[in-house]
Design a protein around this nucleic acid. Structure first.
Lengths: 211, 211
DNA sequence: GTCTATAGACCGATAGAC
DNA sequence: GTCTATCGGTCTATAGAC
């Protein structure tokens, strides 16, 4: 791993803990065993380091969504592709529960995801760009995915009728709420994981069609 | 209004926008038309100003909850008092919808509430005290209130059977999620308000007993 | 209780040697 | 591409006059 990448890694760690203003160039250089002057051979400014982290996280996030078939909101291709339909229609309620829990466990155990999430959380009011990125990433993308999923499930008669957008929020919002609690208070991790599990289970008991 | 209160007011405004580290004593003194040296006649340090804001917000928040009969999580009196029961059992599903929308509209239009919420949001990882305060205030308190409310509504046969804690999260989490979006992107305020309205309405359609 | 002035530390960023 | 040294500026906080 080259120095540039090590700088980005350490900077993300610092920014995610203390924010942009609370982190100095020395804070980043110190743990790497180099002087702060050396940072300027790789980046023009502290702001540029921050921007680069954001940019890279955007790419990595899109890659993850791609694998989950979650289209990023303002992707060029607005229509659902075949793969999505297959995934949506082939899925069972029970399988979906497992999918969500897998997503949660990954999001909470992956150090990079955690750091980016923390950094964006404490930077979300810094600029309209960051505000919109936060919403797009942690609200719109997930809600959009779940909404289309519930559309399919309703059409297929798997779950009861209802507004898919409302159902998506009802399903996803508790998950993200408990993930936030988990981030703030890791000692309550088990409690949060159980609450999420209880939630997804009861959600399907409430919405699934039994005829 | 005396100088000390004006300092706290201006400091909250600045902290809520730029955070603790991004705000200087000059930033606080400037808009008040005094020198930064004068601040030290009222407070010992910048940290003490921040702490005082947190302390006061805690008291004001408890007062608001008191009026809503929402007990603060680690209040000395763990049991429900009579007033709560009356409120819970006397409420209708439709009335509850209105209550929630009133709560949301107040929270989003009241400048003080908004600033404290922003400040806590961007400071939530600064210390375990702030982490716990955030969770207690914006998760535990509201969930606890809703949970006891749903307990009563289930017991009274108003809504269908289910785990009251899970129902509480399903009801409250989408509300707080859309309030977060509303905070980040005020231009989407109408969209958020409508989403909340749709959510509370459909929630009761889904959970209310029709026999 | 306000001011000006300033101490002393640290900041982001640069210069120039190697 | 790393270092040391340093510039010019800002930071928190204090001293002391009024």
């Amino acid at each position: 791993m080259n120095t540039k990448e090590l700088i980005l890694e350490e900077a993300l760690k610092q920014f995610s803990q203390k924010g942009f203003d609370g982190t100095s160039m020395s804070d980043i250089a110190g743990p790497l065993g180099i002087s702060k002057a050396a940072l300027y051979k790789h980046f023009e400014s502290k702001q540029q380091i921050f921007d680069k982290i954001i940019e890279e996280s955007e790419e990595r996030y899109k890659d993850v969504l791609e694998k989950l078939s979650v289209h990023y909101p303002d992707s060029s291709n607005e229509k659902m592709n075949k793969k999505d339909v297959d995934i949506y229609s082939g899925i069972s309620a029970k399988g979906l529960c497992e999918n969500v829990l897998t997503f949660v466990r990954f999001s909470m155990s992956d150090e990079y995801s955690r750091q980016v999430r923390h950094m964006l959380t404490i930077s979300q009011f810094q600029s309209s760009k960051l505000s919109e990125m936060y919403t797009k990433r942690y609200v719109d993308a997930m809600l959009g995915y779940d909404e289309r999923l519930f559309e399919q499930l309703i059409k297929a008669g798997v779950i009861k009728n209802g507004n898919p957008k409302v159902l998506a929020a009802m399903f996803y919002a508790p998950v993200i709420m408990y993930m936030g609690m988990w981030d703030r208070e890791p000692k309550r991790a088990e409690e949060c994981e159980k609450a999420i599990k209880d939630h997804v289970e009861q959600f399907f008991l409430m919405t699934i069609n039994r005829e």
